[in-house]
Write a protein that binds this DNA or RNA. Structure first.
Lengths: 255, 255
DNA sequence: TCTGCATATATGCTTCAAGCATCGAAGCGT
DNA sequence: ACGCTTCGATGCTTGAAGCATATATGCAGA
């Protein structure tokens, strides 16, 4: 805030003197990690990237990619680093979710975890090659119950439930809840689609997030009248029915 | 999550052995604090409790009450403790807001701050006696601009702008933004009023949060038809006009 | 080539909530 | 008794969403 008045010069000197003697390591601190839920949609459902833990604690269980926050690294920077190094992804939507601070959430020691979630189109996520052992794109099943979704389950392609490490089921539940609360007014759906998409694809992304079907005409009208999309004039190709027009995201030009 | 399968017995033994040798203090950690914005409404505006910093850094500036998170204390517990010890308040609405993790946000050392906000009725806040030096109930001015509010200013009763420490202006801006986004569907307004209140008082609380006037009839209809309030049969007293009926909050009974 | 099919896209009707104006009701003060 | 202020109800209008219907378009198969 550059509009704030500058303190008197002698206060500045006193502050400098204080800082020179401050001992940051004088008392025990909780550790801080970031955990990143990378979400995408396909087959009409939300999916998240999970990695199988190769070490204790929770060895063998499935977890969100995460890492400790460096001493000279911002939280956002740490989340970007985890996303880049553990999921092989960069330049995508990434937003802080919530911070989880229960004392016993990690059995090793006191760990506070700042949860993030990222959104990416499915083709980029399946093409990305994470360099961290065994991974899976798990279907995240959180039944629609109006407000705060139902129980959280992570399923593999065969429908088997994957056991999650730590409190990561809780984190994923909050990710889904946040996405459901936000998609009505924030352009989350576009982050899950390629640059050009049909309105049907956009609706399917919304339906996957919400876990409920939407009225087709109302959806189209709402998206178009709000000026969220612009027609490209092109149509989809190689479909066995009438091709739909391709649209692109048009960042709200209101006036 | 008790529904998860139990790992095999030998894995449990291996995990115990691992934990016995884990050294939590082996690498440098950022410190973690909580900062609590205690909000109330009166005179048609939002107000926040601020304390004047008596020590460096930022000596003399106004700050949100805060404190370091203990090694065996949850984040929510730390926020409750700060609220109790530094504002003299307990048993009120308290919710996590966002976590601020820029590297240079505190000049002492690396400090990550988990922001919380609390809501309380004005009479309880003015009656509470914080035991931490000089305090002020600052009017928080964030102009309504539709989406993400305007510039954040903290003003004393005379309208003078109070200089804020660290990134606390940013935190307060996010508090207001969160409250504005949430009040349409969450019962925030009731937290700012006594148990029994008139619909006019509730509307004034909403208007103070939003910094804009609301249509009286639409507001009444919306609140009543959503079943958010129940009439008590009593009316307000000692008013120089027709007394309005007193209502109380009725936690959404939908069926 | 013609026909059927699946989907896209446009149009109209109904329902419901919000904005807005009007009007009577209920207390208090002069 | 009268006027003032606010409460609280009623009705009208507008706009968005749900729903149904009708037409358009491209492909596949007879």
């Amino acid at each position: 805030m550059s509009s704030q008045p500058t303190p008197p010069a002698d206060d500045v000197a006193a502050e400098r003197a204080f800082l020179a003697t401050y001992d940051a390591a004088a008392f025990p601190h909780p550790s801080v990690t970031v955990d990143v839920a990378t979400m995408t949609t396909f087959d009409g459902a939300l999916h998240a990237l999970l990695v199988r833990r190769s070490d204790h604690p929770a060895k063998g269980r499935w977890a969100l990619p995460g890492g400790f926050v460096g001493i000279e690294e911002s939280l956002d920077g740490a989340a970007e680093r985890v996303l880049r190094t553990k999921a092989g992804l960069g330049g995508i939507f990434l937003e802080q979710l919530y911070t989880f601070g229960a004392v016993e959430r990690d059995p090793r020691t006191r760990v506070i975890s700042v949860g993030y979630y990222a959104l990416v189109e499915a083709s980029r996520l399946t093409a990305a090659k994470p360099d961290v052992g065994e991974t899976v794109l798990a279907r995240i099943d959180v039944p629609w119950t109006g407000e705060s979704g139902g129980p959280v389950r992570a399923l593999d392609e065969a429908g088997r439930e994957l056991p999650l490490a730590f409190d990561h089921a809780e984190i994923l539940g909050l990710v889904v809840q946040r996405m459901r609360g936000k998609i009505d007014y924030a352009p989350l759906g576009f982050q899950l689609l390629p640059e050009r998409f049909t309105l049907r694809q956009l609706q399917q992304a919304h339906e996957a997030i919400l876990d409920r079907s939407l009225n087709k005409d109302s959806f189209r009208r709402s998206i178009i009248t709000r000026g969220l999309v612009a027609a490209t004039g092109e149509t989809e190709k190689d479909v066995p029915y009438r091709p739909a027009e391709l649209y692109r995201y048009a960042q709200a030009e209101n006036g």
